[in-house]
């Protein structure tokens, strides 16, 4: 599903923020990525959701070498990936409904199908009464749930979440993790970047630990 081989990454002409990162994720796996601030968690996810290309090494996604994939092929690959951004990146002038509907509209789904699925999902994440609310009128936790709904609405093969529990209390955080596990059981490969130790210890999934841009260890679970 995901393979990194000696991957290095830098922003512009700056120093490398990731160095010699090598790992492979099997389809249907569930991983936490952890490490202190500045360790490279977000940069690692950016490579995985194709916002950046590596400055060296090879990144393979869905059996395609994305370091060389033509720009025109990126949209098709990106549609297989769901992303929960650290800062949500909701479109501020669109309602919660329209934000969640975006991936389906981009993929060309019919409006009646979009209406049914988006309403169901927003109801499931507890935002049934906020379908038409715009992000600035929602709390941080509500915005995060809209962002998560947008990431999972199109049933992605790979779900990437950058600090998805950063703005919610522990109860909602656990509920969201159950949602991710549910998607994982349905075949979605899940990668969650977090430094929430209580969440990591509560769910028994492999942990990739980053430090200063390098992958220092992959543990099978927090208890290991």
């Amino acid at each position: 599903m995901v393979r990194f081989e000696n991957v290095g990454m830098r922003y512009g002409a700056g120093p490398e923020v990731l160095s010699d990162v090598t790992f492979a994720l099997k389809p249907g796996s569930f991983h936490f990525v952890t490490g202190p601030s500045g360790a490279g968690k977000s940069s690692l996810l950016k490579l995985m959701y194709l916002a950046h290309r590596p400055s060296r090494g090879f990144v393979t996604l869905f059996d395609r070498d994305v370091t060389r994939v033509p720009r025109g092929d990126l949209p098709e690959l990106r549609r297989r990936i769901g992303v929960v951004f650290q800062d949500f990146r909701l479109v501020q002038h669109l309602s919660a409904f329209d934000n969640v509907a975006l991936p389906m509209r981009v993929a060309g789904s019919r409006e009646e199908v979009i209406r049914k699925h988006v309403t169901e999902l927003l109801t499931w994440v507890g935002l049934k009464d906020h379908l038409h609310a715009r992000p600035p009128t929602l709390s941080g936790g509500q915005q995060q749930r809209v962002a998560i709904a947008r990431a999972v609405i199109a049933h992605p093969k790979l779900l990437l979440a950058d600090e998805p529990t950063g703005n919610v209390d522990d109860t909602i955080a656990v509920r969201l993790l159950y949602l991710f596990e549910e998607l994982n059981r349905m075949g979605t490969t899940v990668v969650i970047a977090t430094h929430n130790r209580s969440i990591i210890s509560r769910f028994s999934h492999p942990i990739m630990r980053l430090r200063e841009g390098g992958l220092v260890e992959i543990k099978q679970s927090a208890a290991e």
């Binding site: 959701y49 194709l50 916002a51 025109g72 990126l74 949209p75 098709e76 990106r78 549609r79 992303v83 990146r89 479109v91 975006l102 991936p103 981009v106 993929a107 947008r150």
Partner: peptide, 16 residues
């Protein structure tokens, strides 16, 4: 630009 980036990241083509 921010909205366009989000659209790209969820799979929108340049044509879209």
């Amino acid at each position: 630009r921010d909205v366009i980036e989000v659209l790209h990241l969820i799979g929108a083509t340049d044509d879209y």
